[in-house]
């Protein structure tokens, strides 16, 4: 079931009459059966978008389509969605089994059928042993699986997850995101989830949508977005350690930093640009430019050095084998890995 958003807009007016555009003319198509992540900093409108898809918020403008159906005005329960809340929202006074059965009450399903479905879901998410416990007796990870089971039990067309991993500790996060990916693969449901953690989004999404201040920045497969960011914001948002950004100029097809250090070639026009180079795109090369290392951190396989290039402080992530402890080091940028952005608009050039 593909989800299509056309010009989706949400405007909040607070008590003083001030308006905030939480979501601004968002137009995207989420392909059927894919796991798509809505990514962005806090307040960028991703949760609002999610809730509008769910039907809990009414859009101020635009339309939402599930397949060919216009669901913009449809009540949440009629859209056929499953929603997993950030704090799971499990009914504390019901057992796990009753929690999962609750949505089925409203669907005219027979008792026996309901029980079979519950068992099926419990199996799918892996909490078959916990069916008769109450939520307070379960761990955070288990509670979340119950929430997922409850969302999926009515075989929705769309599964929505609000910050699914943010309440879990680091160890559980790894495990749970694999689980989410697995469940999505097995059921084939179109899934949209919201997160502010780019690593999380990149690891499991088929496609990512980056939002900032309610405006979509880019929609692409994770690795594509990483390697070819559409604008400065996306480039800075993805990647850990973060991309180095600075001002530089292009002269006759050479990208120059500072006085005269050439870091790469380009077909762009001459001028001043915002330049981005990811730390891992540097490599040690005796024929490269010389920099003095201000700071070295050895972290096992990688070594991160802090240095100064043409008056700008930068970081480089190098393979430990190639780095010898010394005051200076010779670096080069891997070809094609210098990103040029327009100074004003931030969008990528070439």
């Amino acid at each position: 079931m593909e989800i299509r958003l056309e010009g989706l807009t949400k405007v909040f007016t607070d008590k003083t009459g001030k308006e905030t555009r939480a979501v601004d003319e968002l137009t995207i198509t989420i392909p059927s059966g894919k796991l798509v992540g809505l990514l962005g900093p806090s307040g960028c409108g991703k949760s609002t978008t999610l809730f509008m898809i769910a039907g809990l918020h009414k859009p101020s403008g635009g339309k939402i389509f599930f397949g060919d159906d216009d669901v913009t005005r449809l009540a949440p329960e009629k859209r056929g969605i499953g929603l997993v809340f950030q704090n799971y929202a499990l009914y504390p006074h019901m057992t796990v089994r009753q929690n999962i059965m609750f949505p089925l009450e409203n669907l005219n399903v027979s008792f026996k059928q309901a029980q079979v479905l519950v068992e099926e879901m419990a199996d799918l998410v892996g909490i078959k042993d916990q069916l008769d416990k109450k939520p307070s007796q379960l761990s955070g990870g288990q509670q979340q699986r119950v929430a997922i089971a409850r969302a999926l039990v009515k075989k929705p067309r769309v599964l929505l997850l609000d910050e699914p991993l943010s309440n879990l500790d680091a160890r559980l996060r790894l495990q749970t995101r694999e689980e989410i990916k697995r469940i999505q693969r097995e059921t084939g449901i179109t899934t949209v989830f919201v997160t502010h953690d780019q690593e999380e989004a990149m690891s499991i999404s088929d496609q990512m949508v980056v939002l900032n201040y309610g405006v979509m920045q880019q929609m692409d497969a994770p690795q594509d977005m990483y390697n070819h960011p559409d604008n400065l914001f996306v480039a800075k948002f993805l990647g850990n350690p973060p991309i180095n950004t600075f001002e530089g100029r292009v002269e006759s097809g050479h990208i120059i930093v500072g006085e005269d250090i050439v870091v790469g070639k380009t077909k762009a026009k001459d001028g001043i640009y915002a330049i981005g180079i990811r730390p891992e795109d540097f490599k040690v090369d005796p024929s490269g430019f010389v920099v003095s290392t201000d700071h070295i951190e050895r972290i096992g396989r990688d070594t991160m050095i802090k240095f100064n290039l043409g008056g700008v402080a930068m970081r480089a992530l190098l393979e430990s084998d190639t780095v010898t402890t010394s005051e200076t080091i010779n670096l080069m940028v891997k070809p094609g890995k210098v990103h040029l952005f327009d100074l004003e608009s931030g969008s990528v050039v070439l």
Partner: peptide, 14 residues
Amino acid sequence: IPDSLYRAAQVDGC
């Protein structure tokens, strides 16, 4: 009682 419980129920048609 947290708001999200109400929303969850709403989504389930309650």
